[in-house]
């Protein structure tokens, strides 16, 4: 069936979007889009661009008499530093389970919160901790050492003096 130009359409034909509806739809979409965009903006607010915690990089002097296997924990830091024949290394003392501060012991580390135990190299030996304690980047600077708590290094990485 051919439809002549100007002939009124059948009721069964799909109705073209009326101008009024188009205007209504676009106004609603515009509003929704704008609100969504503003919400996206607001969602960015809770995460500050710079966190208020102190610098994660710090330098520290090791005591002269630090024997191999003995941990040195700089005050106020959650890092244990060690020195043995192969060099200096730092192990984070933040439990990989739920963030409690683990305690260096002669045979490794012990977490007070849920009883995780770690070996001297930070590997999990028991308890719920999902992975080994992090080894942190240590670099030599004059007679002191710079520890970067944000840079993890593979376990076993030791820095020569």
């Amino acid at each position: 069936m051919t439809v002549k130009a100007g002939e009124p359409k059948s009721r069964l034909d799909p109705e073209p979007i009326a101008r009024r509806d188009f205007l209504g739809m676009s106004s609603l979409i515009a509003m929704a889009g704008t609100l969504l965009f503003s919400v996206l903006g607001m969602l960015r607010l809770p995460k500050a661009a710079v966190l208020s915690s102190p610098s994660k990089k710090f330098s520290v002097k090791l005591p002269e008499a630090l024997s191999a296997g003995e941990a040195f924990v700089p005050p106020g830091r959650a890092v244990a530093l060690f020195r043995d024949g192969e060099g200096v290394f730092a192990i984070s003392t933040i439990c990989t389970h739920l963030g409690c501060v683990v305690k260096p012991m002669p045979d490794g580390f012990e977490c007070p919160c849920h009883g995780s135990r770690f070996g001297v190299d930070g590997a999990v030996s028991r308890g719920p901790a999902p992975r080994a304690l992090d080894w942190l980047k240590v670099s030599s600077k004059g007679d002191s050492w710079v520890v970067d708590e944000e840079k993890k290094v593979p376990p076993g990485t030791k820095e020569k003096a």
Binding site: H97, L98, G99, C100, C113, P130, R131
Partner: peptide
């Protein structure tokens, strides 16, 4: 302090899977 530390780290615990 420590209850919240643990609570906040529970919120972080999907890392257990993403780490693995």
């Amino acid at each position: 302090y420590w209850a919240i530390t643990i609570g906040a780290n529970i919120a972080q615990s999907p890392r257990e899977v993403t780490d693995a």
